[in-house]
Design a protein around this nucleic acid. Sequence first.
DNA 1: CCTAAAAAGACATTATGTATCCTTTTAGGG
DNA 2: CCCTAAAAGGATACATAATGTCTTTTTAGG
Lengths: 138, 138
Amino acid sequence: MMELTRKGEYAIRGIVYLAGKPLDKVCLLSDIAAAVDVPPTFLAKIFQQFSKIGLVRSFRGTGGGFLLGRAPELITLLEVVEAVEGPIIPNRCVCAPQDCDRSAFCNVHPVWKRVQGQVRDVLTGVTLRELADGNNQQ
Amino acid sequence: MMELTRKGEYAIRGIVYLAGKPLDKVCLLSDIAAAVDVPPTFLAKIFQQFSKIGLVRSFRGTGGGFLLGRAPELITLLEVVEAVEGPIIPNRCVCAPQDCDRSAFCNVHPVWKRVQGQVRDVLTGVTLRELADGNNQQ
DNA sequence: CCTAAAAAGACATTATGTATCCTTTTAGGG
DNA sequence: CCCTAAAAGGATACATAATGTCTTTTTAGG
Ligand code: SF4
Ligand code: SF4
């Protein structure tokens, strides 16, 4: 239960790699993919998603590539995860109580709310800066 | 991400229903399924799993059915969830660091450990007694 | 023995995850 | 103005997991 998908794992690897580079260093997708050991075509899809919401910026054509959309200390792990995995929802009713007609009197419902809060808190408390420091720094 | 499956949801509904009954009241699967609005055949599979690990006790044949394996205040939500969904694993490496050769220098790894701990803490802090009280009590 | 009820196992269907491939767009450089 | 590099977008293929259902077997009471 509650398992991150490959996509999410790859997404984190990729963007943490970027976070370890200078902010203005344009990185080739193929280089990133090779460095973090992710299928390049898959990572391409992931970075397209990142690009759409501004987490990374992209440049096409010769000399193109990717760089981080913001300073790594301003990007939380929660943002990254939710960008590719969708919102943190331990149970359907957390997001859509109206879908379950038991939610009115259900004592389990608030527990999932609490789980959601805790997970979000942990992930919000971690920035890409912290994740990048100590390893792929150069 | 992190979404409970139907199976998990159904499992909780079913066992919470049992927890709301007297400890010695044998309940028919068909009755439970109807009361908590779950496909009976599916709930049967779930309760078989519960039965194997002693979370519920079962009796076959005429007059048979299910009852709770222990007092509801002694069964945590974590037990119930892990029984049907498997362990709480936010990422593969939490359970098997050796599977990822990056785990040695990875700063993300401890974050997932923390997530796991928080979720488990929340679920451990809730017993079936608390979940049953206030609604299907009779 | 007959019937009620759970256990066990096989099967069917759908949804999700995990990619790959091909075509199109964009941009730089000669 | 072309040629090439590189990302964007769309379609597709395959594997795995989720969500059930069905049938047969075992167990137990009356
Ligand atoms: S029964 Fe309770 S926990 Fe389950 S989906 Fe409905 S509100 Fe949520
Ligand atoms: S890279 Fe880090 S977070 Fe990802 S699987 Fe490996 S150890 Fe875990």
